[in-house]
Design a protein around this nucleic acid. Structure first.
Lengths: 123, 123
DNA sequence: GCAATATTCAACCATTAGGTTGAATATGAG
DNA sequence: CTCATATTCAACCTAATGGTTGAATATTGC
């Protein structure tokens, strides 16, 4: 494992917020300043600044100061690490998916049985 | 997009906790009861029960009652959706990675320059 | 030097999260 | 029926999150 356990915590927690996910996605198109990032949002600039800080702490974005402007760029490496983690587990899931399918089908049948009982002797 | 925005929130938030990630991983090996899941942890059974509930709400696991036992199975589908989301963005990152590399290298040089200045006229 | 711009810091607030303990509920076993 | 087991519910605590507003800091342009 390259990524430490707690780095994953930070990556996932940072991505768990839709505003931050949108910022990450937008930075995929190129670098942006703080105010530019904040523009589409109803929330205060300060709130966006905090989101940026969270992403920065999670190492998902990188800040470079140019004069009074702070320019943010996407750092895809934690995302790649996360992608690898998920891909690594894929083989295991194959079996689980099959088992789950069978399970859910059986449950649906059981539910139907209950519903039928709710109108007993309907004939 | 298949997965709704808020479903991603739930998936990512659920996975952001190391205990829950471990549970997910363990369930990859096969179904387990609540007490079995709780066994390795120092925390109370109740705490684990809450974690399980979070995973269940995120649809990452599925609960089936068998008598007094609750049997949990992994549902890999949200994980797969997450994997797809990450994979989808990969092309975009390629460019970012290159840009970032150049950036970080430039910064390191700048840092070195500062350090050299700290010992001026060292010769 | 001074005003405008870009951004953060600080304090505050409400909600959520992760944990605890103790009691309740449901099932199983003798 | 009664006791033990499996699990959740309820109330509580503390710390973290996501937001606000107002002030501070740094840089630029005139």
């Amino acid at each position: 494992m390259i990524q430490t356990e707690t780095a994953f915590d930070a990556t996932l927690a940072a991505l768990a917020d839709p505003t931050r996910r949108a910022i990450v996605q937008r930075l995929g198109g190129g670098d942006l300043r703080v105010t530019e990032i904040a523009k589409p949002y109803a929330m205060s600039l300060n709130a966006v600044s905090k989101h940026i800080r969270v992403l920065e702490n999670a190492r998902l974005i990188h800040r470079r100061r140019v004069g009074r402007e702070h320019i943010l760029s996407l750092d895809p490496r934690p995302l790649e690490a996360l992608g690898r983690w998920i891909a690594d587990q894929k083989p295991v899931w194959a079996a689980r998916l099959q088992a789950l399918d069978a399970l859910l089908q059986a449950e649906d049948q059981a539910e139907d049985a209950v519903k039928t009982e709710e109108q007993p002797h309907a004939r």
